[in-house]
């Protein structure tokens, strides 16, 4: 789509209010979804909850292919389809819902820098562990990723995905890293986040922003997902303020509505504490 068309679409989008039947699409929760997709999906859900925008979660085995960018999650709002956190934030902003309006330019730049850090470190580390660690890839990622398909398509698609991720790791120079180095990177990233958070309730004091949603999505998912080794979760658990941060967001944005309406579709497996 051309820039002009995109601008036009966002103009139209701005004119329409947020509909009741907005839907978020993600892969099958029980059998298919992987750590990195689950984290991204949770981040978007957290963001929309922080904006107080209702969204129904729908699980589809072909969510990845339905998405216009090929990445999950994506939301279907009215007749618009928007994928990934960044564009979704832009999209809600066009509709007049924003969490970062109260920030000044310096803070906004800082927020963007930290979001990049999370995407470059945590997301990449998740992808690395899923697809480049042979044990995890064999025992968890490939069987789960290919679960909706029959033989021999399941094998083809799983290896195709693995190959694609490995090629990306090659391109960004992660292919030569060992698992220990990746854990060390995660640890450093958490340390940076922990220092930035300090004793505040959210990264930018009282109000949550999209950075909070993103960090929550990744950390909470890492903490609550069982992998072949617990080491990734252990790295995070050594930062108590990050744990408290996750718990705070879970309590304020997820627990109340879970009791109230199950139609919100959030039923994350194990709770944090």
């Amino acid at each position: 789509m051309s820039l002009a068309a995109e601008a036009f679409v966002s103009q139209i989008a701005a004119a329409e209010p947020w509909p009741e039947n907005a839907t978020l699409y993600q892969p099958l929760r029980e059998d298919q979804i992987l750590l990195s997709d689950c984290a991204s999906s949770l981040a978007v859900q957290a963001y929309l909850r922080m904006c107080n925008l209702p969204v129904h979660v729908s699980c589809r085995s072909n969510a990845e292919y339905m998405s216009p960018s090929g990445k999950v999650p994506f939301v279907h709002v009215g007749n618009q389809v928007v994928s990934e956190l960044g564009p979704i934030v832009q999209f809600t902003k066009a509709k007049g819902h924003s969490l970062s309006d109260g920030l000044d330019d310096v803070q906004r730049a800082e927020m963007k820098a930290y979001m990049e850090l999370v995407n470059n470190m945590l997301l990449t580390a998740e992808l690395y562990i899923q697809w480049c660690d042979d044990t995890t890839a064999t025992e968890i990622s490939r069987p789960r990723y290919s679960s909706p398909y029959s033989w021999p398509l399941n094998q083809i698609l799983a290896y195709q995905k693995q190959w694609e991720v490995r090629r990306k790791m090659n391109a960004i120079g992660w292919a030569g890293k060992s698992l220990e180095q990746v854990y060390e990177d995660v640890s450093q990233c958490c340390q940076a986040l922990s220092q930035r958070l300090g004793t505040q309730p959210y990264f930018f004091n009282k109000q949550p922003t999209e950075l909070d949603a993103l960090v929550f999505g990744h950390l909470f998912t890492i903490l609550t997902t069982r992998l072949t080794s617990d080491e990734l979760g252990e790295k995070i658990k050594s930062y108590s303020n990050l744990l408290a941060f996750c718990r705070r967001i879970e309590q304020s944005y997820f627990e109340d509505s879970q009791a109230g309406s199950s139609s919100r579709g959030y039923s994350k497996g194990p709770s944090l504490f």
Partner: peptide, 24 residues
Amino acid sequence: VWRELGCLARTASFAVREESGHSL
């Protein structure tokens, strides 16, 4: 046959989008 369906354009209707993906 391994069939891969996809949308031709971003503006494709959601009914077609729902059919995207792989099948055998």
